[in-house]
Design a protein around this nucleic acid. Structure first.
Lengths: 263, 263
DNA sequence: TCTTTATGGTCTATGGACCGAACCATATAC
DNA sequence: GTATATGGTTCGGTCCATAGACCATAAAGA
């Protein structure tokens, strides 16, 4: 499973800058890229567990690639336990319910080995997202307000965690899009995708969800009210909360690992 | 020549977010990536005009790729008039002096067709670089101060435009590195590379260079003095100046184009 | 119940990218 | 004048992706 998370989404953003020539060239296969794109789509809530991806032939045409290549990508995803393929009419590639590894597992196998990369990513997010929020507040128009209100409403209407995650994504995306700057929208989406993929199993206690929901409301309000300072402050707080959660979780898992090693 | 500038450096940052699946998969060949990396290295001042790139066999081993592949990349760069290959002992692939198209030419053939992408890029830079500068001011340590002072000194000692450009790059890189965040360093470098590649022929009048030099000094001082507000303000001004220059230049070129069409 | 249809599953032939390695050509250093 | 460091060329092999045809299966619909 874990190899599916190794997609180099942000590699271009955090590559080593010592000698730009000394790194090997890696040709990203078509199947590899397709896996990455599909996993990203699921992480962003385009497809939710239980739902089928488009049929192979359609994917092939959408992606401008042969069906054999699509099949290779889907084969890897099946092997990783990410999807399940069913034959016959009404068959398809279905996103599995439990494709996320458990928090502890994921953190131990993926987060800890790359901890400084994630630290940099969180840090950057806390610096960049307030700017994006402030800019959104300055530039939002009536359409943005409508999109944002709708996303917020969906977020509050969400019942289970999957819905909540999808709606969360939509709120943040609506805010980023209010900046009307494609670079910022892409940057924010990339950071979010990365964190969402790696922390799909974020520790969403009811208490946390309550606080996050409140902050989303306040953040959206600030953007709608065209108050950049407030938007910026709330964004800083909001992403600080996420970071603290992850740090706590990692600390707990590390403690567990220590105990296990001692045995 | 122009196709060499079409390297999708920031594609991942500013792709269309409408339907993530509807875009075709493009397999980035090895030669393509090698060209991109070599052009970037030149844009960042790792190699200056007149200097030779490493020999083919060495490049192949550095990049973990066969010599044939390296040769294909170099062939394209030769064809584009970017380098010149000379045989025999002391031969090699030499970066040409005049590999940059003239401003007007470059703008007409490359900048104008993609104008909204560049607008977004400039806009993002003006929003992000102040944050980077402020963060650098907060986090810089003694080593950073040393690196920054050295870069600044080189900048002032620069005599011709090529040296000036290389030193400029080093100053900004030193500032970004003072944030001690690899994501920010990478982000800043990517934006700078992109703009440097597209605007290699920036309108550097002596007056402009004087102002830019002054701003570099002030910016470095603010970072060294650990004054985030001042650093942020100066960065905003500095990148605003660049943007204004480019806008003026584009306006002039467009005017020229209009005149020519009228004839 | 039978036929149709929408899906995944399998096979083959073809072209292209990249590799590895050897060898050729040339210009300079010694 | 010979050795050497460089680019220039060629050949066979492997793997990847394409295109297209056909098979297998399960559900929908007549």
């Amino acid at each position: 499973m874990s190899e599916i998370f190794d997609a180099p989404l942000l590699n271009e953003l955090q590559r080593d800058n010592t000698d730009p020539l000394a790194r090997p060239i890696v040709v990203r296969n078509a199947p590899e890229q397709i896996v990455e794109r599909l996993v990203t789509a699921v992480a962003l809530g385009v497809y939710v567990p239980g739902q089928a991806l488009p049929p192979e032939r359609e994917l092939a045409s959408l992606l401008g690639v042969s069906r054999a290549t699509v099949r290779e990508a889907l084969r890897r995803m099946t092997e990783s336990g990410f999807i399940e393929q069913r034959r016959g009419r009404n068959g398809g590639s279905f996103v599995l319910e439990n494709w996320r590894p458990s928090s502890a597992d994921l953190i131990r196998r993926h987060l800890l080995p790359n901890w400084d990369r994630f630290e940099a990513l969180f840090d950057a997010r806390q610096l960049l997202e307030p700017v994006i929020a402030a800019t959104a507040a300055l530039r939002r128009n009536e359409d943005d307000v409508a999109a944002l209100s709708q996303a917020l409403e969906d977020y509050h209407a969400a019942t289970d965690r999957e819905e909540s995650r999808v709606a969360d994504e939509r709120v943040h995306r609506a805010i980023a899009e209010s900046t009307h700057n494609s670079v910022l929208v892409g940057l924010s989406a990339q950071i979010r995708t990365r964190i969402s993929l790696d922390l799909g199993a974020e520790p969403y206690t009811p208490e946390i969800r309550r606080v996050a929901a409140e902050q989303h409301g306040l953040l959206a309000d600030a953007v709608i009210a065209q108050d950049p300072e407030r938007a910026s402050t709330i964004a800083l707080e909001h992403f600080g909360l996420t970071e603290k959660l992850v740090r706590d979780l990692v600390a707990r898992v590390q403690e567990l690992a220590t105990l296990e090693t001692d045995e």
